[in-house]
């Protein structure tokens, strides 16, 4: 029997997030034509996102909308999801892998004694009616495979690991629900401010981006970092940096990719002037395609990269930016 799947989606600035589209795609392939896919959105200002969700292979869409939910805490989100699932025929709950929604996995699983996995990059049904999940561990240096069983499974997907759902017709019905009362263990309830965007460049953030361009010590001076930023802009990519760059103060610590910074797994990772110390590599090795540009042919980065250009980055990177702008019709 095919499972019935609930996808807890997310809207960012009113639009359905990319990882939500990916989760809907996974849900539909799990449910097949017999199983039911329910999309759930929680928050405020969800008209556009819920309308889109209704066209992405769902059987129905539920919307829990309330101005107070703009910055809901994890426990509130969990209470709403539970109200939606408990008593319904839902055997798989799929979550997007965003920071906040991934935290839901632990709460829901603890409440239901459900089998649970986060950061899934592969997901398929098993013969016994459970799920087989693969997830990168140790910063992408190994993959763990788990078989999830039991009446209910909770899985948070890794962003950008799956293609997005494609549009279907006709649109599924969208049902608005009143927010259930959400009790909190703490009195008074926590006050959460509105989301403040930390991005100054206007580009995507490291965790969200499908393309990341990172710069390292090979850039030699802070003013040269703009070469990396220009290349990133031409690709619509997020900008990252090696520890050498953030330690030297050329860019803030939030740019750092690696063991002590962020782990990223975009579709394309471009390493500019990065030697490829293991501490950096563990933060980017799960990227689908890795390109390295470095003057040292012996640099370890070329061992993990798929494609490499050995040469003077000060000549190569501007030429690459120009070429990309050309093919993308930007100049």
């Amino acid at each position: 029997m095919r499972p019935s799947v609930l996808v807890v989606g997310e809207a960012v600035h009113g639009q359905l997030s990319g990882p939500s589209r990916e989760a809907l795609n996974v849900a539909r392939s799990l449910a097949g034509s017999e199983g039911r896919v329910t999309g759930l959105l929680i928050g405020h200002g969800l008209a556009a996102a819920s309308a889109e969700m209704a066209t992405l292979g769902t059987d129905r869409v539920r919307v829990v909308e309330d101005a107070a939910l703009t910055s809901a805490t994890c426990s509130t989100l969990a209470a709403i999801v539970r109200a939606e699932v408990e008593g319904a025929q839902v055997s798989v709950v799929l979550l997007t892998g965003s920071v906040r929604y991934r935290e839901l996995a632990g709460r829901l699983a603890a409440r239901w004694d459900a089998s649970v996995a986060t950061g899934a990059t592969e997901l398929s049904p098993t013969e016994g009616g459970g799920l087989r999940v693969a997830r990168p561990v140790f910063g992408g240096r190994a993959t763990e495979e788990l078989d999830l069983g039991g009446p209910r499974c909770v899985v948070a997907l890794r962003p950008h690991a799956f293609p997005p759902a494609s549009t279907t017709a006709p649109a599924a019905p969208v049902e608005r629900r009143a927010s259930p009362p959400f009790p909190t263990g703490n009195a008074p309830a926590p006050k959460v401010s509105a989301l403040e965007s930390t991005e100054v460049t206007g580009g995507p953030s490291l965790g969200d981006a499908t393309i990341v361009v990172s710069g390292g010590r090979g850039l030699r001076a802070p003013e040269n970092f703009r070469l990396v930023e220009e290349l990133a802009a031409s690709l619509g990519a997020a900008v990252g940096a090696s520890r050498a760059v953030t330690d030297a103060g050329w860019r803030p610590g939030s740019y750092q990719v690696g063991q002590t910074g962020r782990s990223v797994a975009p579709q394309l990772y471009v390493a500019v002037g990065i030697s490829g110390a293991i501490q950096h590599v563990v933060g980017m090795v799960s990227s689908r395609v890795i390109v390295a540009i470095n003057s040292d042919a012996q640099a370890p980065i070329f061992r993990v990269a798929d494609y490499g250009i050995v040469g003077d980055l000060f000549a190569i990177v501007p030429a690459l930016t120009k070429e990309i702008r050309k093919v993308r019709g930007l100049s």
Partner: peptide
């Protein structure tokens, strides 16, 4: 929760395919 658990290592990366070029423009292209 798990009926089995296995670890696998990614296939060893064979090393980058290096691009031959005469000029930076050619490399980019």
């Amino acid at each position: 929760r798990t009926t089995s658990q296995r670890f696998r290592l990614p296939p060893p990366r064979t090393g980058a395919r290096l691009i031959d070029y005469q000029s930076p423009e050619e490399a980019a292209e």
